[in-house]
Design a protein around this nucleic acid. Structure first.
Lengths: 286, 286
DNA sequence: ATGTCTTTGTGAACGCGTGCACAAAGATTG
DNA sequence: CAATCTTTGTGCACGCGTTCACAAAGACAT
């Protein structure tokens, strides 16, 4: 792409924005549903509605893949299914391993959607010797000791980590050393990996916290709309002087007790101490 | 990373960009870890490293909350934990219900991280009569018939949907009608909800597909770098002519069979027919 | 063939998020 | 008290992603 005049649309060679890639699976799902109903073609408008996105965005997304539509008609469902599948690499088989067979790991192992799209669970791995050999989802759990061997023998390049947070980093290092270059991380930790390795994380706790934020905000606006008395309300937390701060904030239920910085600290910390966060109870991300 | 969003027209009410809100839980986790080690203060540099973000970004994020740092020193850990918790609304109790107690639902019910941050599982709900009364995570599963009653009696405003895709939309409607205004959706469907309701979705299948895309791309580049013969390589997906493309990619096994558009269609469609996608085998999103 | 109607593909404007770079603020030392 | 050093808070520029709006392309009817 750098050599002199490699004249070409150049645009879409290596293009395909991340945001677009992230939506392709969404389109694919909607298209698959249409395909099952034997719908021959769809307009960008219809498909966009089914995928829950803007039609212009969808068209632009598809434009990165090439011109697969027919003006005045729409897109050929089957053909598009094929093209997107190919673009995503779903036309080939991807063996994956799941490390950490706790509650979540087991649920993932039983996950039907895995095999549905070219992903094949090649092995289930756990550090607990008691788990070894035990069948989960019709497949015997193997011990961590054999991790490297399993990876190389099966040509695994994608690993799923569902271990407690404390073990995640080490597991990722072993996976990578063994040849894995893509990781789906369910453990509540920031994995540091070398360049060239892709990591995506799924974090339930974070999603819930984000919802809580919006929920609180909604409650605040509601309160503000109702009793429009206190102007400041949840206003900008001016930590300025002494202990003022947005005290009178009627936002939530937040009583007085939870408002002064230096004092409340102890309580806050204490309340969290026992909490499962550092290593998670073998269930899921925290 | 977990996906999902439901953008609001304009969050003009009180700054705090969505992107920042999404990172606050990350900071909170890192801070909590520091707190447990009794570290009194952290610099933006250290905290940023622990959270896996850019330090300038972190400082800017915090600036939206107010000026909680001390120049030349850093941030007071405990104080910051408190402020972020308050901002996220974690100082209050959030009762949540989990609908759909399959493999995943059960794993979520057992999830320790729930209660760790102010979230309390108020009830487990499932449509299967056989599940009713059955204890999961030390709590009896209740039948869908009582959904509305459960929601209102417990003042639930956050619902978690872990049902098969086919039931998700209807469940969401009942939850919303009963008073829920925030939903965490694990079902592989696009939920259409009225304004004012927040939906975040976690979709394992999509994450894996995104990884597969990058994995394929890496394989393509690798092949291109090695045998620099065919210039085009993984370039623009010219479905047209022959069967070039990054075939020789060592990684996978993509044979020739999976390359022609009009022909492969049938196979692709067929392979998917029986696949669990339309309604998911009571395990997880597809 | 010609005209009309539908729908794609995309140029261009806009807004958000990111990261740099630096002045201001405060701690610390002599 | 002055000098120096550390770290925050933020103005600014850049790039990505989203959205609008419309010309071009093709189907379809006459």
């Amino acid at each position: 792409m750098a050599t002199g005049r490699t004249h070409r649309p150049a645009t879409r060679s290596r293009g395909i924005p991340e945001a677009t890639v992230a939506r392709l699976p969404l389109y694919l799902r909607a298209l698959t549903a249409l395909s099952e109903r034997s719908v021959p073609t769809v307009s960008s408008e219809e498909l966009a509605a089914a995928a829950g996105v803007n039609s212009a965005k969808l068209r632009k997304d598809f434009s990165y893949l090439g011109s697969y539509g027919t003006r005045g008609v729409g897109y050929d469902v089957e053909y598009l299914v094929y093209q997107i599948s190919r673009e995503l690499g779903l036309t080939q088989d991807w063996p994956v391993v799941i490390v950490g067979i706790g509650n979540l790991g087991a649920a993932l192992a039983n996950y039907g959607g895995f095999s549905a799209r070219g992903f094949r669970v090649a092995a289930l791995i756990d550090a607990d010797p008691a788990m070894a050999g035990k069948p989960v989802a019709g497949m015997p759990v193997q011990h961590t000791d054999d991790l490297e061997k399993i990876i190389s023998e099966n040509g695994v390049s994608i690993g799923v980590i569902a271990t407690p947070a404390g073990a995640a980093q080490q597991v990722s290092e072993r996976l990578i050393a063994a040849g894995v270059t893509s990781i789906l991380n369910f453990a509540p930790t920031v994995l540091s990996v070398p360049d060239g390795v892709d990591v995506r994380k799924v974090d339930l706790s974070i999603e819930l916290q984000i919802l809580a934020f919006h929920e609180q905000r909604k409650a605040g606006e509601e309160a503000a709309a109702a009793g429009s008395a206190d102007a400041d309300a949840d206003g900008a937390p001016d930590a300025g002087a002494g202990a003022p701060d947005g005290a009178g904030a009627g936002t939530g239920a937040a009583p007085a007790a939870a408002l002064m910085p230096p004092a409340g600290r102890a309580a806050a910390a204490a309340a969290r101490k026992g909490g499962p966060d550092g290593d998670v109870p073998a269930v899921m991300p925290a």
